[in-house]
């Protein structure tokens, strides 16, 4: 049973006609058709429009229109103060001119690593925390939940400051803490080393955003009816077994959602790196991800003037990557996922 049908399977014809009388007069006039048959499929659809209209209107006007207007610039270039249509030339530059393509592939590669760290660290820990928190007789659950969520509500300025202070080789929080457990030799100026900086930042980002998968999974776990778990207990499935065999399959759709949200979030990310490593995503572009690359190009930086044309081309490439990911999820994963109506 993939996507459950929305048709009212067991609705009796009499009930349908009773229902039909209650239908919005305006919509009936508009369609002017009988609504007696196939009630839920051929009902007048005005309410659908009403449900969709506010969201679609605001979204189209304030988001899609400006974005489309900007992305269009990717097909133009500025030549001698004039905006000239140049077709796909900007994309050609982006992918084939070594000056640009090196940066692009570097950013893309870094971005995948950034995403991988989130998938491997943030989501499993988030699920584990949610699983523990959803335990029915756990005391102080609300307290833990709020405490663990606090990092998520902090601004990037504060997160950057706090972690830079902690990890700083100069002010000594991390070095002295490692010293206290005899691991001083493990310390390195992580944020300043090409080989560690990106992973360190990814972990800081994990620390900050772990509350989100935790919340979502927690909500999903709580909405599993007690009866199902009790039925499992009767069959002798308890503890960890109950988690793996009963709960996990039930929360798979939510795990799907957090995965795709992590993907989208990571491929749009930029604030944390911008705030802690600057626009040039140092050291030596080792923390440059698509977001920072795009912002630097689009809005310019220091002596580098903003280039909305190349910037839009990068944004277009990012859009294509994310769209691909979302489509894989929507059509490849979501439609095949078993979904249970609870």
């Amino acid at each position: 049973m993939s996507r459950p049908l929305q048709t009212g399977k067991a609705i009796h014809a009499n009930d349908v006609s009773a229902f039909a009388q209650d239908i919005n007069e305006a919509s009936r006039l508009e369609t002017g058709k009988s609504v007696q048959k196939h009630a839920s499929r051929r009902r007048p659809r005005l309410h659908i429009a009403v449900f969709l209209a506010p969201a679609v209107l605001i979204y189209t006007a304030v988001m899609i229109f400006p974005l489309a207007n900007t992305l269009r610039l990717a097909l133009y270039s500025r030549i001698d103060q004039e905006r000239v249509f140049t077709g796909l030339a900007n994309f050609q530059t982006l992918f084939f001119d070594p000056i640009w393509s090196e940066q692009f592939w570097n950013a893309l590669g870094n971005n995948f690593w950034f995403f991988l760290v989130h998938m491997l660290v943030q989501n499993p820990i988030g699920i584990a925390l949610a699983a523990i928190l959803s335990h029915p007789r756990l005391r102080f659950a609300a307290l833990y939940r709020s405490a663990i969520f606090i990092p998520t509500i902090l601004s990037f300025v504060i997160v950057g400051f706090a972690w830079k202070l902690i990890l700083s080789p100069i002010w000594g929080i991390a070095p002295s803490m490692l010293d206290a457990v005899g691991l001083k030799s493990l310390f390195a100026p992580w944020l300043g080393k090409e080989e560690y900086a990106l992973t360190t930042l990814a972990l800081i980002s994990v620390w900050q955003f772990i509350g989100i998968p935790m919340m979502l999974i927690y909500a999903a776990l709580l909405s599993i009816p007690e009866e199902i778990l009790e039925a499992g207990e009767v069959d002798g499935i308890t503890g960890m077994g109950a988690f793996w065999k009963i709960k996990l399959p039930l929360i798979l759709p939510s795990i799907g959602i957090i995965s795709i949200l992590t993907f989208v979030g990571n491929f749009n990310a930029f604030d944390l790196i911008y705030a802690s490593q600057g626009a040039l995503a140092g050291p030596d572009f080792s923390t440059d991800i698509l977001g920072t690359f795009m912002y630097r190009t689009f809005f310019g930086f220091q002596l580098q003037l903003g280039d909305p044309h190349m910037g839009s081309a990068i944004a277009g490439a990012m859009f294509a990557i994310i769209l691909l990911g979302v489509c894989i999820y929507l059509f490849g994963v979501q439609t095949r996922m078993r979904r249970y109506q609870l």
């Binding site: 929305q6 499929r41 659809r45 659908i48 969709l52 969201a55 679609v56 979204y59 988001m63 899609i64 229109f65 400006p66 974005l67 207007n69 900007t70 992305l71 989208v264 749009n268 930029f270 977001g291 795009m294 912002y295 689009f298 910037g311 839009s312 944004a315 990012m318 859009f319 994310i322 769209l323 979302v326 489509c327 929507l330």
Partner: peptide, 27 residues
């Protein structure tokens, strides 16, 4: 509801999470 263009509308409404809104700032 099942209606024509449902999937398309869903995708349309999801486009916004794929492009950072900041680049539309000037407009």
């Amino acid at each position: 509801y099942r209606f024509r263009g449902n999937t398309l509308m869903g995708l349309y409404l999801a486009l916004g999470i794929m492009i950072p809104i900041r680049i539309g700032t000037v407009a």
